[in-house]
């Protein structure tokens, strides 16, 4: 009898450890996506991607639409009707948003919010490169990773969201940390 109880206790302890490991695994995903975003941001900054000219946003979409995929027709129409109407504004937005998302994921602050933003950004890249020469699964991997980070609330292991939960409790308006 005692040994059976012991076994059940051990099983529940093991289950708890497994569940903690889950969030730590999600935290590793979060940190990796954060590192990728920050490293790519730095590369893009050096390469002049965050500019509105032919070397920057406009040049990138020209390259995508003419030589490398460019995605489905509806996507091109949306980009032509929005981003390419105000490339300077979007270049600044991308410069700031990409860095903030990367840093937030890196340190685990407002993780679900940052990860949803990153997932949308990566899905946008997926559509942009669809039909081109790039390995499209890269963008699938990135999008899925960001979504899993968001859904796992991965900032609650090795992240600053732990402090927010401790100080403020569960977020009242939805899972933003």
């Amino acid at each position: 009898m005692n040994s059976k109880v012991d076994t059940e206790d051990n099983r529940s302890i093991n289950m708890g450890q497994a569940e903690v490991r889950l969030r730590q695994a999600a935290a590793i995903l979060r940190i990796t996506v954060g590192v990728i975003l920050v490293a790519t941001w730095f590369d893009n900054l050096q390469g002049g991607i965050y500019a509105a000219d032919g070397q920057g946003i406009v040049g990138l979409f020209n390259y995508l639409f003419n030589d490398n995929g460019g995605g489905p027709g509806f996507y091109r129409a949306i980009i032509n009707g929005t981003i390419l109407q105000v490339p300077g504004l979007f270049a600044v937005f991308q410069l700031v948003a990409e860095l903030l998302m990367g840093l937030a994921l890196l340190v685990g602050l407002f993780t679900p919010l940052a990860a949803v933003g990153a997932a949308l950004f990566f899905f946008n890249l997926f559509l942009a490169y669809l039909g081109g020469q790039d390995w499209i699964w890269t963008y699938v991997l990135l999008t899925v990773s960001a979504l899993v980070v968001a859904l796992s609330q991965a900032g609650r292991a090795w992240g600053l969201d732990v402090l927010l939960v401790r100080r403020l409790g569960e977020p009242p308006g939805g899972p933003i940390w």
Partner: peptide
């Protein structure tokens, strides 16, 4: 503080990455 995480998001990602390998064949 809840340090535990659900497995289901990772379980959803698993077959997607399985498909990645199968498509690469």
């Amino acid at each position: 503080m809840n340090a535990q995480g659900p497995l289901w998001p990772i379980a959803v990602a698993r077959p997607i990455i399985g498909l990645l390998w199968l498509f690469s064949l």
